[in-house]
Design a protein around this nucleic acid. Structure first.
Lengths: 351, 351
DNA sequence: GGAAAATGTTGAAAGGTTTCACAAACCTGC
DNA sequence: GCAGGTTTGTGAAACCTTTCAACATTTTCC
């Protein structure tokens, strides 16, 4: 039996953890001195410091962050409110954020709104009550009043992967219209003339912009909007992709698009799965372009052509903007990254 | 005289948010009454209540959670420290936790240790200082002293997807040894006699247990450990899976296993990808079994046979144990779920 | 009409930390 | 010896909320 958990080590146990006051009493020193040991150790003689540190160890002292926060007026906590924790795109963005917050010494916490406006609102309110140091958020709706008000009341807030209303917040996003255009231009260049757009809900800015980009590509190729076949989905999930794929496969051959542009990779993977199970050749019978270039896109058995977003840089840039949010004379900035098309076998046969 | 109430305080500017004291002053009421409006509205006459509520609205009052926490002694925050935010398995577990915490009205926050012991320790320490209501954690090492000590000092803590040292914490896990056995028994039953085990780092309990289960299946079939070919990996990622797949493909044909059991689905997807790019038939040339049955496993173009864990139930059960952790006479419990093999085309040809 | 109960409101204390003006002790150099 | 400086340490105030005993007012019931 390891001695680390020896039962005779009777400590405070179920009671309240020790406070600085108790530490001070045990060390025979004033409260202020304990505080100095913690915050300005150089102002304390090494003899007292040792005595205080021993008392802290003996009492298993743990600093009370609530009290510190109360005194300081704000916490050291940075939070990213994700739109969908199940989408690897957002966890990659979170990693980029973590890169920046680590360097800054702030702890990063995550919340998942699950694309649910009410839940997002609840989190926002909690975070504001918590007086967090800052909020990064990929919102369900960047124009929601709650966002504006939270920022106006003083909580630093940066919008990620969307642009908020002009001049109200900083934001970091990727040019989704351009991304959509790149995707569909590529399909047109590889000979397709009837392209499905698979995505939804249409209220989601990312979806609307990518579709808009698709239309732009058609226009610039001198083709009408009739060349785009809309297959709306209820969410951006693999499951919805499978459903949409099945609907697509059921279309009569002359009307059936020869290519599908999906609003994200999860949908694309679902569509791909349906094709495979129905023995449709990809890209022969249907070419597929996804969006985000998540790791699973390259790992799919028919590797997906996809629009890559600089996910990690996106996160890092957002975090850096957030940390600057409290500087005097701050002007809100909107950073826009450029996406990039990654061509793989789901649109162009390998070899 | 602290009651120097300057009339300038009326304007809600970009300064500190209003406090209850200011609300009370504006409503011409005492502090206690404002508190009653917030916490026991029934004890306040509706006239006063309205007056206070108007004052709160006018001043954009936001409750200060730090102060509440300080008073209450603990926060209303529940946190799940994930082992790897990039693995959908853990985000699904998180969803199960959220199901339970939602019903309880506590907010769920997530942290990602990224399988990094030092980062995990830092989070744990932060959370303890924060006096969080409870911690759910899938630890890098369930025997790490920091876990034991955090729990001993009074922060409710439940271990998820592992069992901690006996009697110290509650835990919820899935029988990984049995899972490994199911996987390899299935491979043996479908005629394979040389099976690769792909997984690592070996220090990870999940990996060790699943491998142990594989050995048990062999033993029970009367086969020696020589029938298991170890291909250790540095992490449980798609990338590492690709590397391991390449190593596997390079083995000389007589020594090459005809089946691979991967410690999780990310690895399995990587291996699968390598097979496809090298024109190896799955399952003809290599049968593959994954672990976790994440959504992407079924969505792979060769749908993966995988060991399904009740991810969401796992999370929910863990959260429920956590909420009971503070009950008097609490006895730590270890809940063990049973995994289930889901057979798909990566081991058995469809049709 | 007045005692008892119900209802509304108040004021002060407590919770753990940080900060800051101040006191005490020790040096330095003359 | 002692003015002036430095190094250590102290005590009290402040941060914002919640709780609770006590007070004030109204209602109820004989």
């Amino acid at each position: 039996m390891p001695e680390a958990g020896s039962p005779d080590d009777r400590c405070p146990g179920p009671g309240r953890p020790a406070s600085m006051k108790e530490v001070a009493a045990l060390a025979g020193v004033s409260l202020g001195t304990v505080s100095n040991v913690l915050n300005r150790p150089d102002r304390v003689s090494s003899a007292t410091r040792t005595r205080v540190e021993e008392a802290m160890a003996q009492l298993h002292f743990v600093r009370n962050e609530s009290a510190r926060q109360l005194r300081a007026g704000q916490s050291r906590m940075i939070v990213y409110v994700m739109l969908d924790g199940g989408n690897p795109f957002f966890t990659d963005v979170a990693r980029g954020i973590a890169d920046a917050t680590d360097e800054n010494g702030s702890g990063l916490f995550l919340c998942d709104s699950g694309n649910h406006a009410e839940r997002e609102r609840a989190y926002l309110s909690r975070l504001e009550q918590q007086r967090v140091q800052g909020i990064l958020i990929t919102p369900v709706d960047p124009d929601a009043p709650a966002l504006r008000e939270t920022a106006r009341r003083g909580t630093p807030l940066v919008i990620v992967d969307r642009a908020g209303p002009a001049g109200v917040h900083c934001s970091v996003a990727v040019d989704d219209v351009l991304g959509g255009e790149l995707a569909v231009r590529h399909l047109l260049e590889t000979g397709h003339r009837r392209v499905a757009f698979i995505g939804g809900p249409a209220g989601l800015g990312q979806v609307a912009d990518r579709r808009e980009g698709a239309c732009r590509a058609l226009r610039r190729a001198g083709l009408g909007a009739g060349h785009l076949v809309d297959l709306p989905t209820a969410a951006l999930t693999v499951e919805e992709g499978r459903t949409a794929g099945a609907r697509l496969a059921r279309l009569p051959a002359p009307a059936r698009p020869t290519a599908a542009f999906c609003a994200n990779d999860l949908l694309a993977l679902g569509v791909l799965q349906t094709c495979v199970s129905r023995r449709l050749d990809v890209p022969g019978d249907l070419a597929i372009v996804g969006y985000d270039d998540i790791d699973f896109a390259a790992a799919a058995a028919v590797p997906l052509t996809s629009v890559r977003q600089p996910r990690r840089r996106l996160g890092r840039a957002a975090a850096e903007l957030l940390l600057r949010e409290t500087e005097p004379e701050h002007e809100h900035r909107h950073v826009l990254f450029t996406p990039e098309l990654v061509i793989r076998s789901s649109t162009v046969r390998a070899g």
